[in-house]
Every structure is written in structure tokens, then in C-alpha cells.
Amino acid sequence: MKKVIVTMLILVFAMCAFAEANVAIVFATGGLGDKSFNDAAMEGMKKAKELYAIEYDYAEPSAITEYETYLAQFANSKKYDLIISIGFDQADALTKISKRFEKQNFAIIDMVVMNPNVASYVYKEQERGFMVGYASALMTIKTDDVRINGDKVVGVIGGMKIPLIDANIAGFMTGVNYADNGVKAIHSYVNHWADPAKGKELTLSMYEQGADVVWGAAGRSGLGVINASKEKNFYSIGADSDQGYLAPENVLTNGMKRVDNTVCIAIKDVIDGKFEGKIYSLGLKEDALGYSINLLPEDVIVELEIAKKKIIAGEIEIPATIEEVK
């Protein structure tokens, strides 16, 4: 009898140990239903709940001034093993709150906060650039597709000339060069995150120069890239989330940023007791970046998967600046 009780007690303890993590998440002001970062992060929370049996609470601030209040309320309750901030504009609030609650673990996604109790998750942007660049180069030499012209040119349009975007462009160019089939990559910048009209104009001018696959790494300006491809019937590539629904016949693939997986990774680190207040650079290996299937043909996917394995194994080096691209 005693043995049974002891076994049961051990079981109970074990159960407690398994369902241990409480996680709180503070979304960006767009709130749930944004079809972007917040929704993806929520997916990640749900996934983590299934995988690791965590409990979670979330907050949807309606104003930037509320970030600090929510973060402080969560931290003050001392109930959570991890508090996650979504959205770069939480950096100010998190910097202050993480200093105030030194024993609380925090994580921020797609932004860096340099405090010992904050894990910052950022991305090796050049890796997804490589994948879509390689895919473009493999596509543009096809001959049996009306959306493909005779020229061996592909393009990428950045939002602004900042290191993050240039890493994407450098990856894209490296990917194109890796295909080694004489395809040329051209690039330009919109100089605005939310100017679809100019994005479209630049895309059409690339199209005039012979580009038939164009990637828009330009925030909302990228919508113009997709629009242009729909109008003239060539290929475009979306960014961050699956934008295929915008032009099902023209969006070839998407340079995906898997915020859901990133959230899971952050939570798993805490559960495994591996939390560290440092910068994590995630990429293909962690499935935090990637590409979506959409219109990609089977043979291209096979090639992409081979390249992906090589990148993960460290066999392909991808520079993060355009100057370093050979």
C-alpha cells in the first residue's frame, strides 16, 4: 500500500513538473486578427500548449503606452516562467520593465533588448533570401511556362537600405549565384515601407529589364510587387507570411518568417532550463525561416531541400551584406 502511495506521489510530482510552464504574451498594438505577427505568435502559443502542456495568458494592448502596464502587471504577478513581447515597438517598454523585474525571464521577437534577463530572437535574414533567390534562378530558366520570359533575369525589391533588408538581398543574390546557370539578379529599394504604388512601379521597370521573378522584401510596399506580377502575369514572391491568396496564379513562394515556431523555441528553452539573456539568431535550421510551397514545381523543391540541408550543415556560406556577395 505504501508503495502505491509513494508511486502515486511521484507520479503527481512528475505531472506537476510536466505542466509547469506558465507563459504570458503581450501582443503588438495591431491585436489579434492582423494576419501577421500577432496571429502567428498566437498560433505558436497554441502549438506550445499542445506540445509542452503549458498554460498561457495574453494581452492585447490598444496603445503603445499600455505595453509597460501589461508587462508590469504580468511580471508583478510572479506567476510566469516567461513573458514574451511581440513587435519591435515594445523595445522601450521591455527595456525598462526587464530592468525593474530582474528575476523575471522575458523574450522579445524580431528585436534586440540587451538586458541579462531578456532573450532576443532575431533572424538570419540572408538564409531565407538565399532560398527564394535560388528558387527564382531555377524558375526563370524554365521554358514551358507563360509567366516566364526568355531573359535570364530575376529581381528583388527592398523596403529601405538598412542592414536587415540588405541581408535579405545579399542572400537572394547568393542564392541566384549558387544556381550557377547564368541568371542575373538585379535589386532596388522603394525607400518606404508602405508605398505599394512605388513598389509596383519599380517591379514593372524590372519586368521591362527582363525580370520575370521578383521578390518584394518591402513590408506593405511588397503588395505592389504582387500586384504588378498579377497585372503583367509573371511571378512574384511574398514575404513574412503566406501571401499567396493575394494572387494565387502569380505568387511563386514566400520568404517565410515563422514567428509561431520562434515562440515555440523561446518557450522550449525555458522549459528545458536553457533560458539565457542573449541574442539568438534563428534561421532555416530552427525552422524559424523558410519558404512556402505555393506554385513551386516538384523539381525546384527537391533542389531547394538539398540546398537547405547544406546551409544547415554549414556547407554554404551566405554573406549578410551585399558588398560581400561574390
Binding site: 496603445a63 503603445i64 503606452t65 499600455e66
Partner: peptide, 16 residues
């Protein structure tokens, strides 16, 4: 007062 007391800078869309 929001800039000088709360945000310490101007950010677009700060107001709910």
C-alpha cells in the same frame, strides 16, 4: 505631457 512624461519620444500612432 505624454511625450515628456510617458513615452519620452514621439512615436507614430501613440494614441488610442
Amino acid at each position: 505631457t505624454i511625450v515628456m512624461g510617458v513615452l519620452h519620444r514621439f512615436i507614430t500612432n501613440f494614441s488610442p
